[in-house]
Each structure stands twice: as structure tokens, then as C-alpha cells.
């Protein structure tokens, strides 16, 4: 990767700004031998909880106009198996690992952070305070500045890893939540997670998904995500990782120009598991043609005309 693609995120600098989003790329090891996973800007692994979780009642996915709903319910192997079985393979592969963690209490978020601190090969910790798919948990941290600040500062106190906090578009005022997590010591903001939607199966006269609601992702979400990022950028000084419907170079340029220092690619991985590498190459060519580096374009759409 050329130097012009470097994406500085505080203490952490990524070789390129395309990260694969949590929940859409497993633990990355599944793609080894098929995609050069070491070249990815990073992989935010499937949300990890203290205990393994079996996931929600199916059906768990439904397609929507230029997007999809999912209600997976954070099916995952748990931190013990992840650190013991998956991390050695990720280290061997040279993947830039972002440990996405999920819990339903501050205490459990703190416990996860403690157990990840000192694990070799973790580039950053990402707090999922915005999962819409788990009963009694998760998203309530992400919809109020006070709760988001509380969990962030508690985790900050026990981790030396760069700390990313992933925000929910369901917050009444996402800027308030962003300011709160910055004040509480977050190094980076990731935004946005999915927003809850529903599809009705008209033949069965019931919601399509087993859990009725699911998080919406995909291209349909992009304008909402860009708008929120544009607003949050004006209110915080820590770097922001943008996401929501990115599937092309131009999509990602919108996020960079709105103020994202890096981006995450999610739903588009399903159609093309190597898309992030393709986008990195396309961005490299786009920047080279204009004699620019990535940091030259971050937030440029914020400038007065």
C-alpha cells in the first residue's frame, strides 16, 4: 500500500482507510487464502461477548430496497475461544484486528476490555454500544450521552488500547453522544451502526424476521450516515470512522469529504468479499491522479464554498 493511503487515527495509523465492518466478515480467518486479509486496512471482528451466544431465532435476514435487515443477535464464540483459538491465526495472518466487543452492562464491558488488554495483536478496541438486536441490552448505552459516557470512561480506565466507540443512529441527538464519548476518553468514533427496520411477510401476515425487527444496512442507509457524520465532525476533534452503505470508491469519498478519517465496509462484503482491497487500490489511483494524499480530502466538504 502506498503512503498516500495512510489513515491516522490518533495513536493508531492504518495502512489504508478501508476496514471491514463488524458482523460482516466473521473473524477474517474464514477469508484467508481467498482475500489477502493482511492488506485490509483492518478488520473489526464479529462482536465478542464474555460468553458464547447462539444468536436469535431465524429467519435472521431479509432483503430490503438497496439494503437488508439482520437480526443475528450477536452469535459469537465468546472471548475465551476467540483469544485462545482465533487470535493466534490472526497474528499469523498479519491481520490488523479491531476487537469489537459487546455487553449488556458496564461491568461486562469493563471485564471484556481488561481481558483484551495485553492480548498480542489487537490494534484497537471497539465498543458496540449500538446493537439493535439484543433484548435488554446494548443499544441503550448508545442512545443517551450520559450512558455512553459512563461506559466509555469505565472502559477507558482499564485499557491501554486505542478505544473506538460505535454510535447508534437511533440516538435522539447523536452529536450529544459523540461529545460525551469524546469527553469520556474515546480515541475514535465509529458511526453508524444499523437502524431498526421491519419487513412484513404479507403471505403469512407476520413480520418476516424471527425477532420481528432487524438492523438495516446497505446503500439505502448512506445519506443518513453521511449527514450524521457531517454533523458530528463539527462537534468533536477526535477522528471518526464512517460507515453506512459503502460499496464504491465514490461512496467512500463522500464519507472522507464529510470528515471521516477512515471508513468501514459492511454489507458490500457479501457480494464481493475482496471489495475493500479493490476500493483501496481505486482510491490510491484517484489520489495519485490528483497528486493528493488521503488526509488532504478529509472534511473538505465542510469548507465554506
Amino acid at each position: 500500500m502506498s503512503a498516500r493511503l495512510q489513515a491516522p487515527l490518533g495513536a493508531l495509523t492504518l495502512d489504508n482507510p478501508y476496514i471491514n465492518a463488524s458482523g460482516t466478515y466473521g473473524y477474517a480467518v474464514e477469508y484467508a487464502g481467498f482475500v489477502d486479509v493482511a492488506r485490509l486496512g483492518g478488520v473489526s471482528v464479529k462482536g465478542i461477548s464474555l460468553e458464547p451466544r447462539p444468536g436469535n431465532m431465524p429467519p435472521r435476514t431479509a432483503e430490503t430496497a438497496a439494503g437488508m435487515l439482520n437480526s443475528i443477535g450477536l452469535a459469537n464464540i465468546g472471548i475465551e475461544a476467540f483469544v485462545r483459538d482465533t487470535m493466534p491465526r490472526l497474528r499469523e495472518l498479519g491481520v490488523t484486528v479491531i476487537a469489537n466487543t459487546f455487553a449488556t452492562s458496564v461491568e461486562d464491558f469493563v471485564e471484556l476490555a481488561k481481558r483484551f488488554d495485553g492480548v498480542e495483536g489487537i490494534a484497537a478496541l471497539e465498543l458496540n454500544i449500538s446493537c439493535p438486536n439484543v433484548h435488554a441490552g446494548g443499544m441503550h448505552f448508545g442512545v443517551s450521552g450520559e450512558a455512553a459516557g459512563e461506559v466509555t470512561s469505565a472502559v477507558r480506565a482499564v485499557t491501554s488500547l486505542p478505544l473506538m466507540v460505535k454510535l447508534s443512529p437511533e440516538a435522539g441527538d447523536i452529536c450529544e453522544v459523540a461529545r460525551a464519548v469524546e469527553a469520556a476518553g474515546a480515541d475514535v468514533i465509529t458511526m453508524i451502526n444499523t437502524i431498526r427496520g421491519m419487513v412484513i411477510d404479507v403471505d403469512r401476515r407476520r413480520p418476516m424476521l424471527g425477532q420481528k425487527m432487524g438492523g438495516m444496512s446497505g446503500p439505502a442507509l448512506k445519506p443518513l450516515a453521511v449527514r450524521m457524520l457531517y454533523e458530528v465532525y463539527q462537534q468533536v476533534s477526535i477522528p471518526i470512522i464512517g460507515m453506512g452503505g459503502i460499496g464504491s470508491l465514490r461512496d467512500s469519498l463522500e464519507f472522507f469529504m464529510a470528515g471521516a478519517s477512515a471508513v468501514q465496509v459492511g454489507t458490500a462484503n457479501y457480494a464481493e468479499p475482496g471489495i475493500s482491497l479493490r476500493l483501496a487500490d481505486e482510491l490510491d489511483a484517484w489520489l495519485a491522479e490528483r497528486d493528493l494524499v488521503l488526509t488532504d480530502i478529509i472534511g473538505v466538504a465542510q469548507d465554506p464554498a
Binding site: G23, T24, Y25, G26, Y27, E30, Y31, K46, P54, G55, P58, P59, R60, T61, A62, E63, M68, N70, I72, A75, T267, N269, Y270, P273
Partner: peptide, 22 residues
């Protein structure tokens, strides 16, 4: 089953097995 990833990463295509696990 409808699938998103096709390779075991998205956990979308769950069916309940007779042993009580997905």
C-alpha cells in the same frame, strides 16, 4: 436458505438442529 455471506461469517442462515443447537 436465503444467505448473505455464504461462508459462515454473517450467521444469517441458521436452522435449529435436533440436538438443540443452531
Amino acid at each position: 436458505a436465503p444467505m448473505a455471506c455464504g461462508m459462515g461469517t454473517c450467521k444469517g442462515c441458521a436452522v435449529m438442529g435436533t440436538d438443540g443447537t443452531y
